[in-house]
């Protein structure tokens, strides 16, 4: 419980820091978003219109602390401003449109890659020196060495353009309406297969090799030999004694991989014109859409922190030593 509160306190503190940084950084830039927007309109806006836009965007020239509290209030009530690019669509609605695409595509792929990679790593380490151990790491490493955007382009060309097996772009077909209906879901899954495959190929090797190497170390530990000697069944020996310990260092990598999901696979989403956060972020940056960039950064930072918190909790569950150290520190 103390460990939990400790971690929770840390989460709140770092959330506050992220939010505050997100407030300060844009204000360090010269000008303000309204001026940037007017500059885009080539200055054809009169001062009263500027005032109106400033209000619309939630800008004020009040003292910083006032702005800060206003910003915090807006943040909590979901008023994150409006996008320039898609003015006057609100940032929140843009993000909430693109977030599910990224989370579902990359979340599912990452979880599959972690589970499959870890299991394969455990098994080839157990049968060390076997055929699978000699072949799989090399083949998957080859997959990781291929730049994913290039593999993506090749896949689009070969499976999309030449053979028409898979769609070449977008998250779903034009003929379906988004929502919880079967045609849309099938179409979305169909569209996600190629990008999912590319992400999977690019990341699986890391999980296999990482887990395999951790397992090798753990299998040499005395407690594994001791457990083998005392007659523990093989399955339990592999999973409860060896893999359970080998998994602990992997958790950190899993946390990093999960937090980077929200940042999106920018290149992959770009190549497949996939309507996720990564694609949105590139568009926002190239069109200097500050509120949208700010909103996306905030979402990315917050998710990363929350996922880290969850993994910390998981760590505490899996490793009794961490639980105690955390509680006493």
């Amino acid at each position: 419980m103390r460990y939990f509160l400790n971690r929770l306190g840390f989460l709140i503190l770092s959330l506050w820091a992220a939010v505050t940084l997100n407030f300060i950084l844009p204000r360090l830039m010269p000008g303000n978003p309204a001026q940037a927007m007017i500059a885009k309109q080539a200055g054809n806006i009169n001062p009263s219109a500027l005032k109106a836009i400033e209000q619309e965007l939630g800008l004020s020239n009040g003292p910083l602390y006032q702005q800060y509290f206003q910003y915090l209030g807006n943040l909590l009530t979901g008023h994150w401003g409006s996008s320039f690019q898609y003015f006057p669509t609100s940032v929140v609605s843009i993000i909430s449109n693109s977030l599910p695409w990224t989370i579902i595509l990359l979340g599912v792929v990452t979880i599959i890659a972690v589970v499959v990679g870890t299991l394969v790593g455990i098994l080839i380490a157990w049968r060390r020196g076997g055929t699978a151990d000699n072949v799989i790491p090399i083949v998957t490493m080859f997959g990781q060495a291929i730049p994913s955007f290039w593999l993506g382009l090749i896949c689009i060309y070969f499976f999309g353009f030449i053979h028409h097996w898979f769609p070449m772009a977008h998250g779903s077909g034009d003929d379906v309406t988004q929502g919880y209906n079967l045609p849309f879901i099938t179409s979305a899954i169909y569209h996600s297969i190629l990008p999912a495959f590319v992400v999977f190929v690019g990341s699986i090797s890391g999980w296999i090799i990482g887990m395999r190497n951790n397992m090798m170390t753990t299998l040499g530990e005395d407690y594994v030999v001791f457990a083998e000697a005392k007659g523990v069944p093989t399955r339990r020996l592999i999973f409860s004694y060896a893999a359970r310990n080998a998994l602990l260092p992997q958790l950190t990598s899993i946390a990093i991989a999960l937090s980077s999901i929200i940042g999106g696979q920018i290149l992959i989403e770009q190549v497949f014109s996939y309507p996720g956060i990564g694609y949105g972020l590139t568009n926002a940056v190239s069109s200097e859409d500050y509120p949208l960039i700010q909103g996306m950064f905030l979402i990315i930072a917050v998710t990363a922190l929350v996922i880290n918190f969850i993994v910390d909790m998981l760590y505490g569950r899996l490793d009794p030593r961490v639980r105690r150290r955390g509680a006493t520190s």
């Binding site: 530990e221 005395d222 407690y223 030999v225 001791f226 457990a227 000697a229 005392k230 007659g231 409860s240 004694y241 359970r244 310990n245 602990l248 899996l318 490793d319 009794p320 030593r321």
Partner: peptide, 21 residues
Amino acid sequence: FRWSKMAMVFQSAMSALNPVM
């Protein structure tokens, strides 16, 4: 057979037990 007829105490007291159990 092992452990029911013969058993062994390992050299390293520190590392012969699984840390997560």
